[in-house]
Structures are given as C-alpha cells and as structure tokens.
Amino acid sequence: MNAMLLLLADSRLPAGGHAHSGGTEQAVASGAVHDVASLAAFLRGRLATAGLVAAGLAAAAVTASGAGWAELDAEADARTASPAQREAARTQGRLLLRVARRIWPAPALDELAAAVPSPHHPVVLGAVAAATGCSPRDAALAAAYNAVTGPATAAVRLLGLDPVEVHRLLAGLAPALEDTAATAASACAAGESARLPAHAAPALDLLAEQHIRTEVRLFIS
C-alpha cells in the first residue's frame, strides 16, 4: 500500500469517473437493483466478472511497453463484447490518460497515448500505476476497487440508499477485492496476455446496451 495508490484509486481523482455507473443506472431502472441486498449481489457479481477482467488487464499494463500497448488493448477489446461498454471503457481511459499525463508525466504514458489514442480504462490504469511506482498487484487492486465503488456511489445517488449502509457493504467486499487483485496479479505473472481472466457478465452487457439506447439517463454508462 502506498500513497500514490490511494490517489489513483480515489474517486476524487478528476478523471470523469463520477459520471459512470457501470450498468447500475440501468439495473436500477429495470428494478434488478432496488435495495442494499440486491446492490450487494450486483456488486459481487460485477467484481467476479468485469472487476476481475479489469484487474488482470491493469496488472498486465504495469509491465507493458512498445507493441505491448496495442496488444493489451486488443485483449481488452476481445473481452468486451458490448460496443457500449467498449465505448465507456475507452472514454474513461482517454480521460484518465489525459489527466494522468499532467499529474504524473512519464514517457510510458506518452508512448501509450501514441500507440492507442483512447485505450481501455484498465490498460491506462495499469500504465499510470506503473508511472507512480505501483506494483501489478496494486494496479489490480485499484481496478477491482473502481469496479465496485463507482457503481455503489451511483446506487446511493439513484436510490437514495443510506450511504453508511452501502459503505458497510463495500467494507464487507474488501476480502473479495484482495482476492481479485491476487488472482489477477498471478494470472498476469504467467506472462501471457491471452490467458488473462475473461469472465463475461451477460447481464452487464445487456444493461449497457439497453442503457445507451435510453433517452433519459443521468450517467454516461
């Protein structure tokens, strides 16, 4: 654990994350998420799928360079079947990269921007983590944390849930976050980006595609 990781994972990092709900807005609209218990089930499933995938990609990005950037970004594409989710991931990645290049200037970030103009968010997250001296496991933990905290906050705003209750739920997820980061880091240590976690979440795909076609929405994703 280091101070840079705290800054990087903080929702106050001004990189546009606050306007993404990661499918929560649509899950609330459909009634699938309606209270703290259903939010808990939503977040656990999200962490075990999209969260683990993001964690693996972020961990791998810590050691990426050169042609590895485009390769890793293509691996992210292949794990994101929904075009709406690819767009959301690339938008968030682009914003994070732009902000990070001002906060933590590093040749690797310039190299990534040159190789992939709007990379998937986890790839950028890993690259920024490396620029700040974080390990692959740190990067994976930040990605896993992002995968649940943004949606949890969105649920608080959309459903008026008790924020303390929701944070208690997040605290309960801490061991799962650690496990996810460890799994991702060891998958990444195997060295082959093709073998990184690829856990699909069909319901998230459906929610994302419904959301992007919804006229009235408060969140980008």
Partner: peptide, 19 residues
C-alpha cells in the same frame, strides 16, 4: 452526462467536459 451531479462536472471533475 453528469451522473446526477451537475456541479461536479463543471467544478470538481471537469474531465468529461474538457474532453
């Protein structure tokens, strides 16, 4: 889109607007 927080998008986290 501002995720229920219009003031955040113009003041605290302006990334999406800059974009």
């Amino acid at each position: 889109q501002t995720g229920c927080c219009p003031h955040t998008a113009i003041r605290d986290d302006i990334a999406a607007n800059i974009d």
